[in-house]
Each structure stands twice: as structure tokens, then as C-alpha cells.
Amino acid sequence: MIAIPVETDNGTPMSTKLFGNAKFFALVEPKSKDYTIIPNEGCGNGIQTANYLLEQGASSALYGFLGDGPFHVMVRGGMNVYWLGKETMPLDQAIDTALSETLVHVTTENASLYLDPGTAAGACECGCSHD
């Protein structure tokens, strides 16, 4: 299951830039492209969001802006993490992009190139040690 942060749970959902502050996530079944939109119970805290998505059974996550803390939680939990880019897009386009296998797979080896928490200071504000 692929987790994609989205701005709304109705109308035409759009991907959203911020991972931990996303109000909702679309959980996408890759084979059918069917999705369910769920509220982000960790909203406002990237680490809680990452743990919540793991609890929901997500095996992959897409993001625009993401800090070190949530990234490491997801990777340690066995999730694959992909950089969607910093622009929003309709959910259907984000799903097609994810399934096209053209996204950057962010790993611990290349994370410094692709992680950006999107905060004004440019630094992670999750409060963890990132160990």
C-alpha cells in the first residue's frame, strides 16, 4: 500500500507538500489504483505520522517535504520512501507517477540530497535524536 499525503478528503484530492502536517493520506492499492483517504492521526508531528502509516500497513510513502526523524522511522519500519517533488498535483497524477517507477527512491545513502523538512529554518523540528 502506498501512502500519499493529500490536502482534502473530498472533491478532487491534491497531493500536499508537507508530510507531517498533511491533514489526510490516500492509501493506494497499487494493482487496482483504488484508494481510501484517511485522516492523519499524527498531523503536526512527522514521527507520529510515520508511525501511524506503518500501523495502517503502508509499505511505501511519497512526500514533498520530509525531515530526518519521520524518514528514519519509516525506513526502520521497512517502508520504501520516494520523493514526489515539491509541487502539488492531482492525486490521480501522483498515483500514476508513483506507479511509473520514475520517482527517486530515497535511502539512507542519498537522504541528505532529498530530505528537506520544509520549515522556515530549514531544520528538522521533530524533537528526536535521529539515531
Rank of each mutant, 00 (worst) to 15 (best):
E55H: 08
G46S: 10
T36N: 11
Q93R: 12
A123I: 13
R76L: 05
N40Y: 06
T119D: 08
T8I: 10
G127D: 11
P70F: 12
D131N: 14
S59Q: 02
N80G: 14
K31M: 06
D131W: 01
G122T: 13
A98Y: 12
S15H: 05
I38A: 12
A22I: 07
A3N: 04
T49F: 09
A50F: 14
S59H: 03
L99C: 05
A61Q: 01
G11Q: 06
A58F: 04
P117C: 10
G57A: 05
G127N: 11
M14F: 07
M1P: 14
N45C: 11
D92V: 15
T107M: 01
N110K: 08
E29T: 14
V75S: 01
Y52T: 06
N10Y: 15
I95A: 03
S32V: 05
T12R: 06
C124G: 15
K23I: 03
Q48A: 11
E87M: 00
N51V: 11
V28H: 07
L103I: 11
T16G: 00
A111N: 02
G85A: 03
E101M: 13
E109N: 11
L113S: 08
L62C: 08
Y63Q: 04
G64K: 09
H72W: 07
G85S: 03
I38V: 12
S15R: 05
M74R: 06
F25D: 02
P30A: 09
G57K: 10
A26H: 04
K17N: 01
Q56W: 05
T108E: 02
D68A: 07
V75W: 02
R76S: 13
I4M: 07
K31P: 00
A50I: 14
P13G: 02
T36R: 11
E29A: 09
N80H: 11
N45A: 10
G122S: 13
Q56M: 06
H130R: 05
T12L: 07
A22R: 03
T12K: 04
G11W: 09
P90S: 09
A123H: 15
I47Q: 14
G11S: 06
A94S: 13
S15V: 07
N51I: 11
D34A: 12
T107F: 00
T88I: 08
A26G: 02
S32W: 01
G69R: 00
P30N: 12
V6A: 10
F19W: 00
K86D: 09
Q56Y: 05
S112N: 06
T119V: 15
A3G: 08
A94R: 03
K33L: 13
M79W: 06
Q48S: 09
H130E: 05
T36H: 11
L18V: 12
T108Y: 03
P13Y: 05
M89N: 01
D9P: 11
T49A: 13
F25G: 02
F71E: 04
P90F: 02
M79Y: 04
I37W: 07
Y52Q: 04
F19I: 05
G46C: 07
S32T: 15
L99M: 08
A58W: 06
N21L: 10
G64H: 07
N10K: 15
R76E: 15
T97D: 11
F71Q: 02
C43H: 01
E41K: 15
G118Y: 13
C43T: 14
